[in-house]
């Protein structure tokens, strides 16, 4: 980039601010201002009556570290981590399978099928899972009818149900970046690995995983980030017992009316997620530097 900048005359570079202006205004109004207001709000205090008192301090942040809340954060992280790993384990073979289809038409059909759930409202799809998982639901009734179980299994309103819901929702966001990365791998490189004595399993670890690392990183971020902050899925499938960070924030705003505390939690989650994205970005960039011509 350096040489190009020296060629540019000063008038065009001054003019470039004009071209950037719409994007900068958009960012400032829609992202900068709300973030700032959350940051300021998180330093305020809730009055006993539920109003916001503008007495600034960091008491909300120290309160957020209370074991009661830490446990909720820990469970969110664990569920998000499990969701990410399950999506990776399920998504990788699916993405690989799609890249190995001989015709472009077949590949596009499968990619379309992967994105098919997006055509229906998220809420409806989640309710559909309730119909499947509940005590009188399709799965329990089916298993009972087959005589496989005698008592209905507790499938709904627990961590398991949240995990099912999250994996179901997030899986396409894992498959698509993995597909993009795997599609770029030359088939002859996989054959070369086999030719040089690697079994399919060894080829997976020594060729496919390192060469698809940008896709794995992207998929992990795309799945992990929304899973940590998930709010509707745990609310609908997890029942009252299984609270996640997203529900905690929601309840501070909508139920307890403690906006400052809700803002503080939201800010902590956001900083944590940003740190993760930054770390993964660095990992990907190192990788792309390695490959760039």
């Amino acid at each position: 980039m350096q040489p190009r900048r020296t060629i540019k005359s000063s008038s065009t570079s001054r003019l470039s601010w004009v071209w950037h202006a719409p994007a900068l205004i958009w960012l400032a109004v829609l992202i900068g201002l709300p973030l700032l207001s959350v940051a300021v709000l998180s330093l305020a205090r809730r009055s006993p009556g539920g109003e916001t008192e503008w007495v600034l301090g960091i008491s909300n942040y120290s309160r957020a570290l209370d074991p009661l809340y830490l446990w909720i954060h820990a469970r969110s992280l664990l569920l998000a981590l499990a969701t990410t790993l399950i999506c990776l384990a399920l998504g990788f073979p699916v993405a690989y399978f799609i890249t190995r289809q001989p015709s472009a038409g077949r590949r596009n059909l499968y990619l379309f099928l992967v994105t098919l759930p997006f055509w229906t409202s998220f809420l409806i799809r989640t309710y559909a899972w309730i119909l499947l998982l509940r005590t009188e639901g399709l799965i329990n009734n089916g298993l009972l009818a087959l005589g496989a179980i005698e008592q209905p299994l507790p499938l709904l309103y627990n961590n398991f149900a949240i995990l099912v819901g999250l994996v179901y929702t997030e899986l396409p966001f894992m498959i698509l970046p993995l597909y993009t990365a795997l599609e770029r791998i030359d088939r002859s490189q996989i054959e070369a690995s086999s030719d040089l004595g690697c079994s399919a399993w060894q080829t997976f670890w020594r060729i496919l995983v390192p060469l698809s690392r940008p896709g794995i990183t992207a998929g992990v971020v795309l799945v992990f980030v929304p899973s940590v902050g998930a709010y509707l899925t745990p609310d609908l499938l997890g029942g009252a017992k299984s609270l996640m960070t997203g529900n905690l924030i929601h309840s501070q705003f909508a139920v307890v009316r403690d906006h400052p505390f809700g803002s503080a939690i939201a800010f902590i989650v956001m900083v944590g997620v940003l740190a993760l994205v930054a770390a993964s970005h660095r990992a990907t960039r190192e990788h792309s530097e390695l490959r760039a011509p």
């Binding site: 030359d186 002859s188 490189q189 054959e191 070369a192 690995s193 060729i207 390192p210 060469l211 390695l290 490959r291």
Partner: peptide
């Protein structure tokens, strides 16, 4: 034919 060297 394409050499198929491992780029990483």
């Amino acid at each position: 034919q394409s050499y198929a060297l491992f780029p990483h």
